[in-house]
Amino acid sequence: MCLAIPALVTEKLPDDMARVSLEGVSKIISLALVDDVAVGDYVILHVGYALTRLDAAEAERTLALLDEAIAAHDGVPV
């Protein structure tokens, strides 16, 4: 389903790693595939790797859309 989720970068770590907050949960991820990411940025996250950097407004729009999609999904068992 090609899903990837925005996560807030809370701390940069050595070796291209970072700590992010994802749905309130702290996770360690890799920044090996992106550049110029700073604390406070959002990144699109997939299987432990940041794929792209997002600004806060775009991240909020994406998270709101995901919430709507999950609500729609929960109403339709397949």
Binding site: M1, C2, L3, A4, I44, H46, L51, T52, E58, R61, T62, L65, L66, E68, A69, I70, A71, A72, H73, G75, V76, V78
Partner: peptide
């Protein structure tokens, strides 16, 4: 069934919305 979130949206908004939803 996440795609059901597109139902009811203006058609013109949907291409950008699915790009955001299915980011990979």
């Amino acid at each position: 069934s996440l795609c059901r979130a597109m139902v009811g949206r203006p058609a013109a908004d949907v291409p950008a919305a699915v790009e955001r939803l299915y980011a990979l």
